[in-house]
Design a binder for these strands. Sequence first.
DNA 1: TAGATTGTTAATCGATTAACAATC
DNA 2: TAGATTGTTAATCGATTAACAATC
Lengths: 209, 209
Amino acid sequence: MNKKVPHDAILRLSFYLRALKNFEEENIKVVSSKQLADFLKINHHQLRKDLSYFGHFGKKGVGYPCSALIDKIKTILGLDKTWSAAVIGFGNLGRALSFYKGFREQGVYIKVAFDVDEKKINKEYNGIKVYSIEQLEKIIKKEDIQIAIITVPKYAAEEIANRLSKCKIKAILNFAPINLVTSSQILIQNVDFGCQLAYLTYHLKFLKP
Amino acid sequence: MNKKVPHDAILRLSFYLRALKNFEEENIKVVSSKQLADFLKINHHQLRKDLSYFGHFGKKGVGYPCSALIDKIKTILGLDKTWSAAVIGFGNLGRALSFYKGFREQGVYIKVAFDVDEKKINKEYNGIKVYSIEQLEKIIKKEDIQIAIITVPKYAAEEIANRLSKCKIKAILNFAPINLVTSSQILIQNVDFGCQLAYLTYHLKFLKP
DNA sequence: TAGATTGTTAATCGATTAACAATC
DNA sequence: TAGATTGTTAATCGATTAACAATC
């Protein structure tokens, strides 16, 4: 317990959570670190080490109780709370993310969206109202938004991030193909499938016959 | 040069490429590793080290020629070639990705899509024809698809991945919230914004007043 | 009790950072 | 030439893996 937690260990908690849910669905009450690690094709030492950063969740000689560990990990990751989010940029990707059920399952509710397109502004889509980007600061305050999801074009992303950092937004999930650098205390995660795709093509070159 | 290249170094090449394009747009012909690294808020030693895995691209006492280095990195990442891709699952996310321009800019062309929904099958959207998932193997062979982009629901992802591994698909970009484990020689990149979102909520807990 | 499995400390491995000689 | 900057080797740092004592 305690000590600095490696960045990747936090991401791995999400994988553990998923796997545990699988086990629970199959009515398995207790799993050992070996079972869980084998299922995830990872090292069982690492699994135990990762969990040990946060507490003692297992019983020696027995294993981990599935359902209790699920709750613990949810609490660690802040998934037991509810969070309010806004999607900025209501294009194809923004719309897809607005309707993505996975976010709600994690307790993240997309309350509003923003766009520059007059045709979309002031309309409601599946219960999500689209506002003009001009009203960004006002609506974020009014709706008490904590998380911003950026899907605007590259050239607009930086300005949006700047405006957000002046609101009380605390975290940004950025889908624009630009590495927004964390200026102040605002948390940023860049989702960059362009890079991941390039990683694939890099390796594909070698495979190609 | 040579030696095993760290996983993250390959991803960083994409960032370098983007930054270099920025410099080029501003008509800057030559950049030093210091300039580029400062711009990206990273260590300049790392930048030089990463590039050195692939060759000697700079001139001592001078720096790196922007436009030549852009071409070199593109070649390294396989972005100088063209690749054929298919989107599997033509829901909101699948549709958004199908129309995403960033892929084409990287030389990855989405040729076809697959879905189970009769209403979508055999229709064409922005030049992308949607086929029944039953025809997966047939069309992939016919269209000579190399990369599959999975956006089907979680419960269907594993079966799709299995079927793909029996085709001549060499790489999968997976958006389903499940860690597809690389069975055979098929390359898999899991794009997991659920995990990245959980990483944000993990930290948000601490920030919350 | 004996067997199993956790949690933690130690060993290993790899990646990042630094230093510097080579050289434009 | 002197100054600047690369490319590489060495030092540091941190994360992963292993070993094992504690204990259910």
